[in-house]
Nucleic acid binder design. Structure first.
Lengths: 353, 353
DNA sequence: TTGTACGCGTTATCAA
DNA sequence: TTGATAACGCGTACAA
């Protein structure tokens, strides 16, 4: 069987090029690498054969032969539909892409089982590193041993029970600052709408809310705390219920965008004079019927930082003395959008009409 | 040199497992595949060696040997930070992930040069298929020949000068319907803010706007058309300039979210009584100070449909008679958010207080 | 200047 | 039931 007959389908290989050019595959390899010591005549024959067949080097076989890594990094997020995770992914891709490293992206939809399966598949595909937004609290599948030494960085949520680098938002500080802003405006009955305590951000942001109240000498009123709503609709229902209390809150701190949007709708529909401060900035925050305060931070920067930490580990390789796990915290900024700002610029810089 | 000494670093291989279990690599392979004809004793020895070494099959080498494809699909988008492309990517991933296919994601930032480089790299990595949101109008690098027979689906923007499957939004119909909605409200001076004609969506959405005007017996007023603004800030500036005209428009049709947000800010800051209708729905569209009409569509569905078209081509393989290029158009819906809706439910269903 | 032999990790095939 | 051999596509080392 000749080389050409050998394969039924598939892209042309070096053999095919070699056969057409009347040389050995090795000469093709050298010609393509611009090795010195290939006659011009042969090189031209090879290159025209390459053009005729549309030959393209097989990067997979190439890296296998050279014992090089794949240049692939796995990125596992919980919800790409959330702008925060999309920004995170973009930040990762921008840093890794600059190094010629490609991103293998998967979405887990907060499903821990899927996360474990996906990580296993990515490892079998010989990824060089992994960035994970972990869906659950059990991180045993992300230990150094389980990953076979492939470095991992956790993003947005910290490792639990294992050692790993991570990049976090200052959830506590942002929540405390936002709540303090409401307190500074004179609010004394401030509701909390957020994730349950089992979710890291839910716990930290509640802690920031509670500490801000305590610093103002106020107790947490359990009746003003709602932590079960998982959709915008449920958040709106919860906020509406709060507004209908005998003694309703005068302000709401919302610990994530679902709750912010649900609360915005509830307050707008009720026509209530209730202030809202919440996590996550968005483009239309300054043109709302309800004055809003937001905790802003740079989602892309979180991704870039995660990628930098990962590249650092990847460069270190499997050293004997593994550097200790690092934790990077990204700062937050409080932005106050008011009706008054409508006559000025965005971000609180007022400009007279 | 023994097998164990042979490699300095790297994950354990079948040889390592075989050596530890005292069998040949072939037996390890069979044991792991649960082939019949492997004695229980040997199988147990192999499995315990696997556990001891933390061995994991190398999926890359495995597929190379079996002549199988990589099970990787390239996804090339222009701007993952835009919720539309994030949703598109999510839709693609959800369909392909269900088939055990992984997504290699790259962001081009609308840079045609980067797109060509990235596509070349993805092809060298032996992807099975490609979904592209093309950055430019020159698609020669996406022809069947240039891709070496790897199937491609174009998303959100159609192929130009080449044959390829694509999934599009009904840009023309959505723009015409939105403009008609403004006309039905009695508006006669309606401005257009959108992309330049060189961008497909810019051309189609302008056409929809112009046809709607023509159907109402109105000419396009060139002074009310702005197509150069590329950022939200530029859009706001353009909209502000329109509002300051001697005879300002009474409504604005915005052909993308940048222009919608910029126009919202301009109208809100001017305190003008100007209606806005624009492409792309968003969560806070119903709690704005400006009544808004949006052209809504399902970004994830576009991704899912693109993935389905791609899977179809991938299954067909390199047939002799290539099926003709298909074009799928995703419907749009007009949603009218009004101040009145604030007493009712979302999406136009009014409910009395 | 060009070719041969061999191996990366895995598995199909055939032999034992 | 198990092992030896060869091969997937490519590149290093050495020989011609």
């Amino acid at each position: 069987m000749t080389d050409v007959e050998r394969r039924i389908v598939g892209p042309p290989t070096m053999r095919d090029v070699a056969a057409l050019a009347g040389v050995s595959p090795m000469t093709v390899s050298r010609a393509l690498h611009e090795h010195p010591g290939v006659s011009t005549a042969v090189r031209d024959r090879v290159l025209s054969a390459v053009g005729a067949l549309g030959y393209r080097r097989n990067e997979v076989a190439r890296r296998l032969r050279q014992g090089r890594s794949t240049g692939l990094v796995g990125v596992v997020v919980t919800n790409l539909g959330n702008p925060f995770y999309a920004g995170l992914t973009l930040g990762i891709e921008s840093v890794l892409g600059g190094q010629g490293i490609r991103v293998l992206l998967t979405n887990t939809a907060e499903d821990e089982g899927r996360e474990r399966e996906v990580v296993e598949d990515l490892l079998a595909r010989q990824i060089d590193g992994l960035v994970v937004v972990p869906a659950g609290a059990d991180h045993r599948h992300l230990t150094d041993g389980a990953l076979g030494g492939v470095p991992v960085v956790m993003a947005a949520r910290p490792p639990s029970g294992i050692q790993a680098d991570c990049v976090l938002v200052d959830d506590f500080g942002g929540a405390r600052a936002a709540t303090s802003a409401l307190l500074a405006d004179g609010h004394r009955r401030i509701a909390f709408l957020g994730n349950p305590p089992a979710v890291y951000t839910g716990a930290e942001r509640y802690r920031g809310y509670a500490v801000a109240l305590k610093e103002a000498g106020l107790p947490v009123e359990p009746g003003l705390v709602r932590r079960r709503q998982q959709t915008i609709g449920e958040a709106q229902t919860a906020a509406t219920a709060l507004l209908r209390r005998g003694v309703p809150p005068t302000a709401i701190f919302t610990a994530n965008s679902r709750n912010t949007i649900g609360s915005l709708r509830a307050v707008a529909r009720a026509g209530a004079n209730v202030a809202i401060a919440g996590f996550d900035d968005f483009e239309t925050a300054d043109v709302l019927v309800v004055p809003l305060t937001v905790v802003a931070y740079d989602a892309e920067e979180i991704g870039r930082e995660a990628a930098r930490l990962l590249l650092d580990r990847m460069a270190a390789g499997a050293q004997d003395d593994v550097p200790p796990a690092r934790r990077v915290v990204i700062d937050t900024t409080i932005i106050r959008y008011r009706r008054d700002d409508l006559i000025g610029d965005r971000n609180g810089v007022r400009v007279p009409r």
